[in-house]
Each structure stands twice: as C-alpha cells, then as structure tokens.
Amino acid sequence: MSQPILSVRAAEKALGGCPILKGVDLDLYCGQISAILGPSGAGKSTLLRAIAGLERLDAGQINSREYLWNNENQFTPAEKRRVGVVFQDYALFPHLTVEKNIAFGLKDSESKDTAQDRVRELIEQAEIGAQAKSYPHELSGGEQQRVALARALAPRPDIVLLDEPFSSLDRRLRADLRTQTMSAIRDAGAAALIVTHDADEAFETADTLFLMEDGRIIQSGSPTDVYTHPVSITAARLLGDINIVSGTANSSVLDTILGRISVPDCLDGTKLKLLVRPEALVPSEVGAEFIIDDIRIRQGRQRLRAIAADATIWIAELPLARTIKKGETLRLALDESSISVLPA
C-alpha cells in the first residue's frame, strides 16, 4: 500500500478534565473510504475534529503527507488544512443560497470563472440544479445533506471527513443517499473518514473499519475480517449480536454443546471464550438439538432464539426460505470458518 495521506499517532485529548482520546493511531489512504464505528462517547467526533483542526491534541501527532499538522509545539488551524468536513447537522450557512454555500470555500483559491464552473459541476453531480437559488431552510433533509457534501468537496480536498452524515435522515432515504455520497467521494479520489454508530452503515460504506471504544481504536481491518474475527467481546458486540461460550481447552480441543472445536495446543489448560456470530449456526443433520423459542424477521432473514439442551440461550440467523415454527426442534452445527476463540 502507498504512503498514507494522513497519519494520527498516539493522539490524546481531554475535554473539561475528562480524557476523550487515550492514544489513538490511525492512517488514511487516498481513494479509500474508512469508517470509525463506536458507541456514543467513544471519542469518534473528537478524533474527527482533531483531524479537521478544530481541536488541538494534548499529546501525539497528526501528519498529512510531509506536513506536520499537530504535535506538542505546533498546530495548523482548520482554515490552513483544507480538510473537507460534512457536519452532523450540515452547518449550512442559513443566509446564503445553495450556490453560494457551495462556492464559499472557493473564493481566494480560484478565479471567478473556474469557481463558477466548479459550482455548476457539483450542483449537477448532486442533482440539486432546481434548488441552486434556494436557501437551506427551503430544502429537504436529503437535499441539505447533498449540499453539505458538495460544499465540502468543492475545494477538492485530499481528505473528507463525515460526522454521522446520515443520522438525521429516514431509513429509506439514508440508503439511497449513502450510495450517492460514496460514489461522489470515490469520484473525487479523496481519502474519506466516516464517523458512525450504525454498524450496517459502516459495513456498507467502508473499505477499512476502525472500531473505537473508550478513547481507543480497539480493532481495525476490512469489514468482513473485523466482523467474523473480532479481537474482543467488546469489538464483537459493536458489530452485532454474538453468542459466547466459555470452556477450557484440552489436547487441542474445546468441548462445547455444539461439538468439538480444534484450537492451537498452546492454549491447552487455559480458559477460553468462543465467539459465535448468529450466521455461524447452520442447520445440520449432525448438529445439536435446539428448541426454537422465538422467531423474528429482520432484513429478509429470520432470527431465532434457540434453547440448547443445557438451557443456554442462543441466537441464530437463517435464510427465510426454510419455514420454522415456534416450539420446533432444530439441529444446528457450527460453521468453523467464522468463529473466534479468545482467552477468557
């Protein structure tokens, strides 16, 4: 992989005496979309604001290419960094039309004609031509979001930051806009960082996923990898439901109600936790018996609450194709390729 366009090292920041960032490392690459996922209060927005130059770090460093943006002695303010930001509430200038909002960042860098061309191009791209002369309060939520993105992209920044950009939109609109937004960012070729607390959103948008919890990045990698092989229970829970089994390994084997799992022999004698995603439970003739206690339909799949012989409760997810009735007995086995074993 090429040189990162932005790197954050050991970033620390306290607000009002309360530590928010506790040593964060993060790299962004051109043409890549990254997402930070974490619960509220994890420090996501603070990290984003530090990258934008709206907060100064207490310790650590931020570099962009060969430029030092922030360390103990040096700080480049936001207006000198030219990082594009789409704010959570969009922060459109209420007294300026759509056109003028988009043109705001172009003023001194380009000549008037090229600036006008650029604005026209962005308005076309965002499909807001009819509203070019409208004021922000006359726009719908989705239109406001598109204007905010166009405004951020107008000066052709190398880095675009998006703070919960879809959180105030309704569900269906959100999916449409997400696709549109992502393709606009990909076209721009910038490095993008999206802050979100919605796991589905993170999966759908990101090439690289950063999981953040309590001021630290607890895991990063491709979305699939992070989902199927979480490094901790906390990381696992951030991305969705998870079944947890504890046990002790013996001669490279962990005995569970679902059968034997092979583990590296160095783990023999240690207490382990087995993390199983609901999708990793598959129907099988040789599986263990479960009584189905509850069935819910979710996004075209069925989610089952299953009670095992030892009375433990499991969550399984199966395609809708198979009809299952409440109270039915079902045999389920483990798909070993998508489970994680962690020391307890």
Partner: peptide
C-alpha cells in the same frame, strides 16, 4: 443563529477569522 458549527464549517473551507 450563528452556531459554533457554522464557524467551524467556514474554517474547514479555509476562511480566515476576518472573513
């Protein structure tokens, strides 16, 4: 009406304090 968010948006777009 002039939220701090607007200040920040203007800053990230490269506007100096005077502007």
């Amino acid at each position: 009406q002039v939220t701090h968010r607007l200040d920040e948006a203007a800053k990230t777009l490269g506007a100096p304090s005077r502007r």
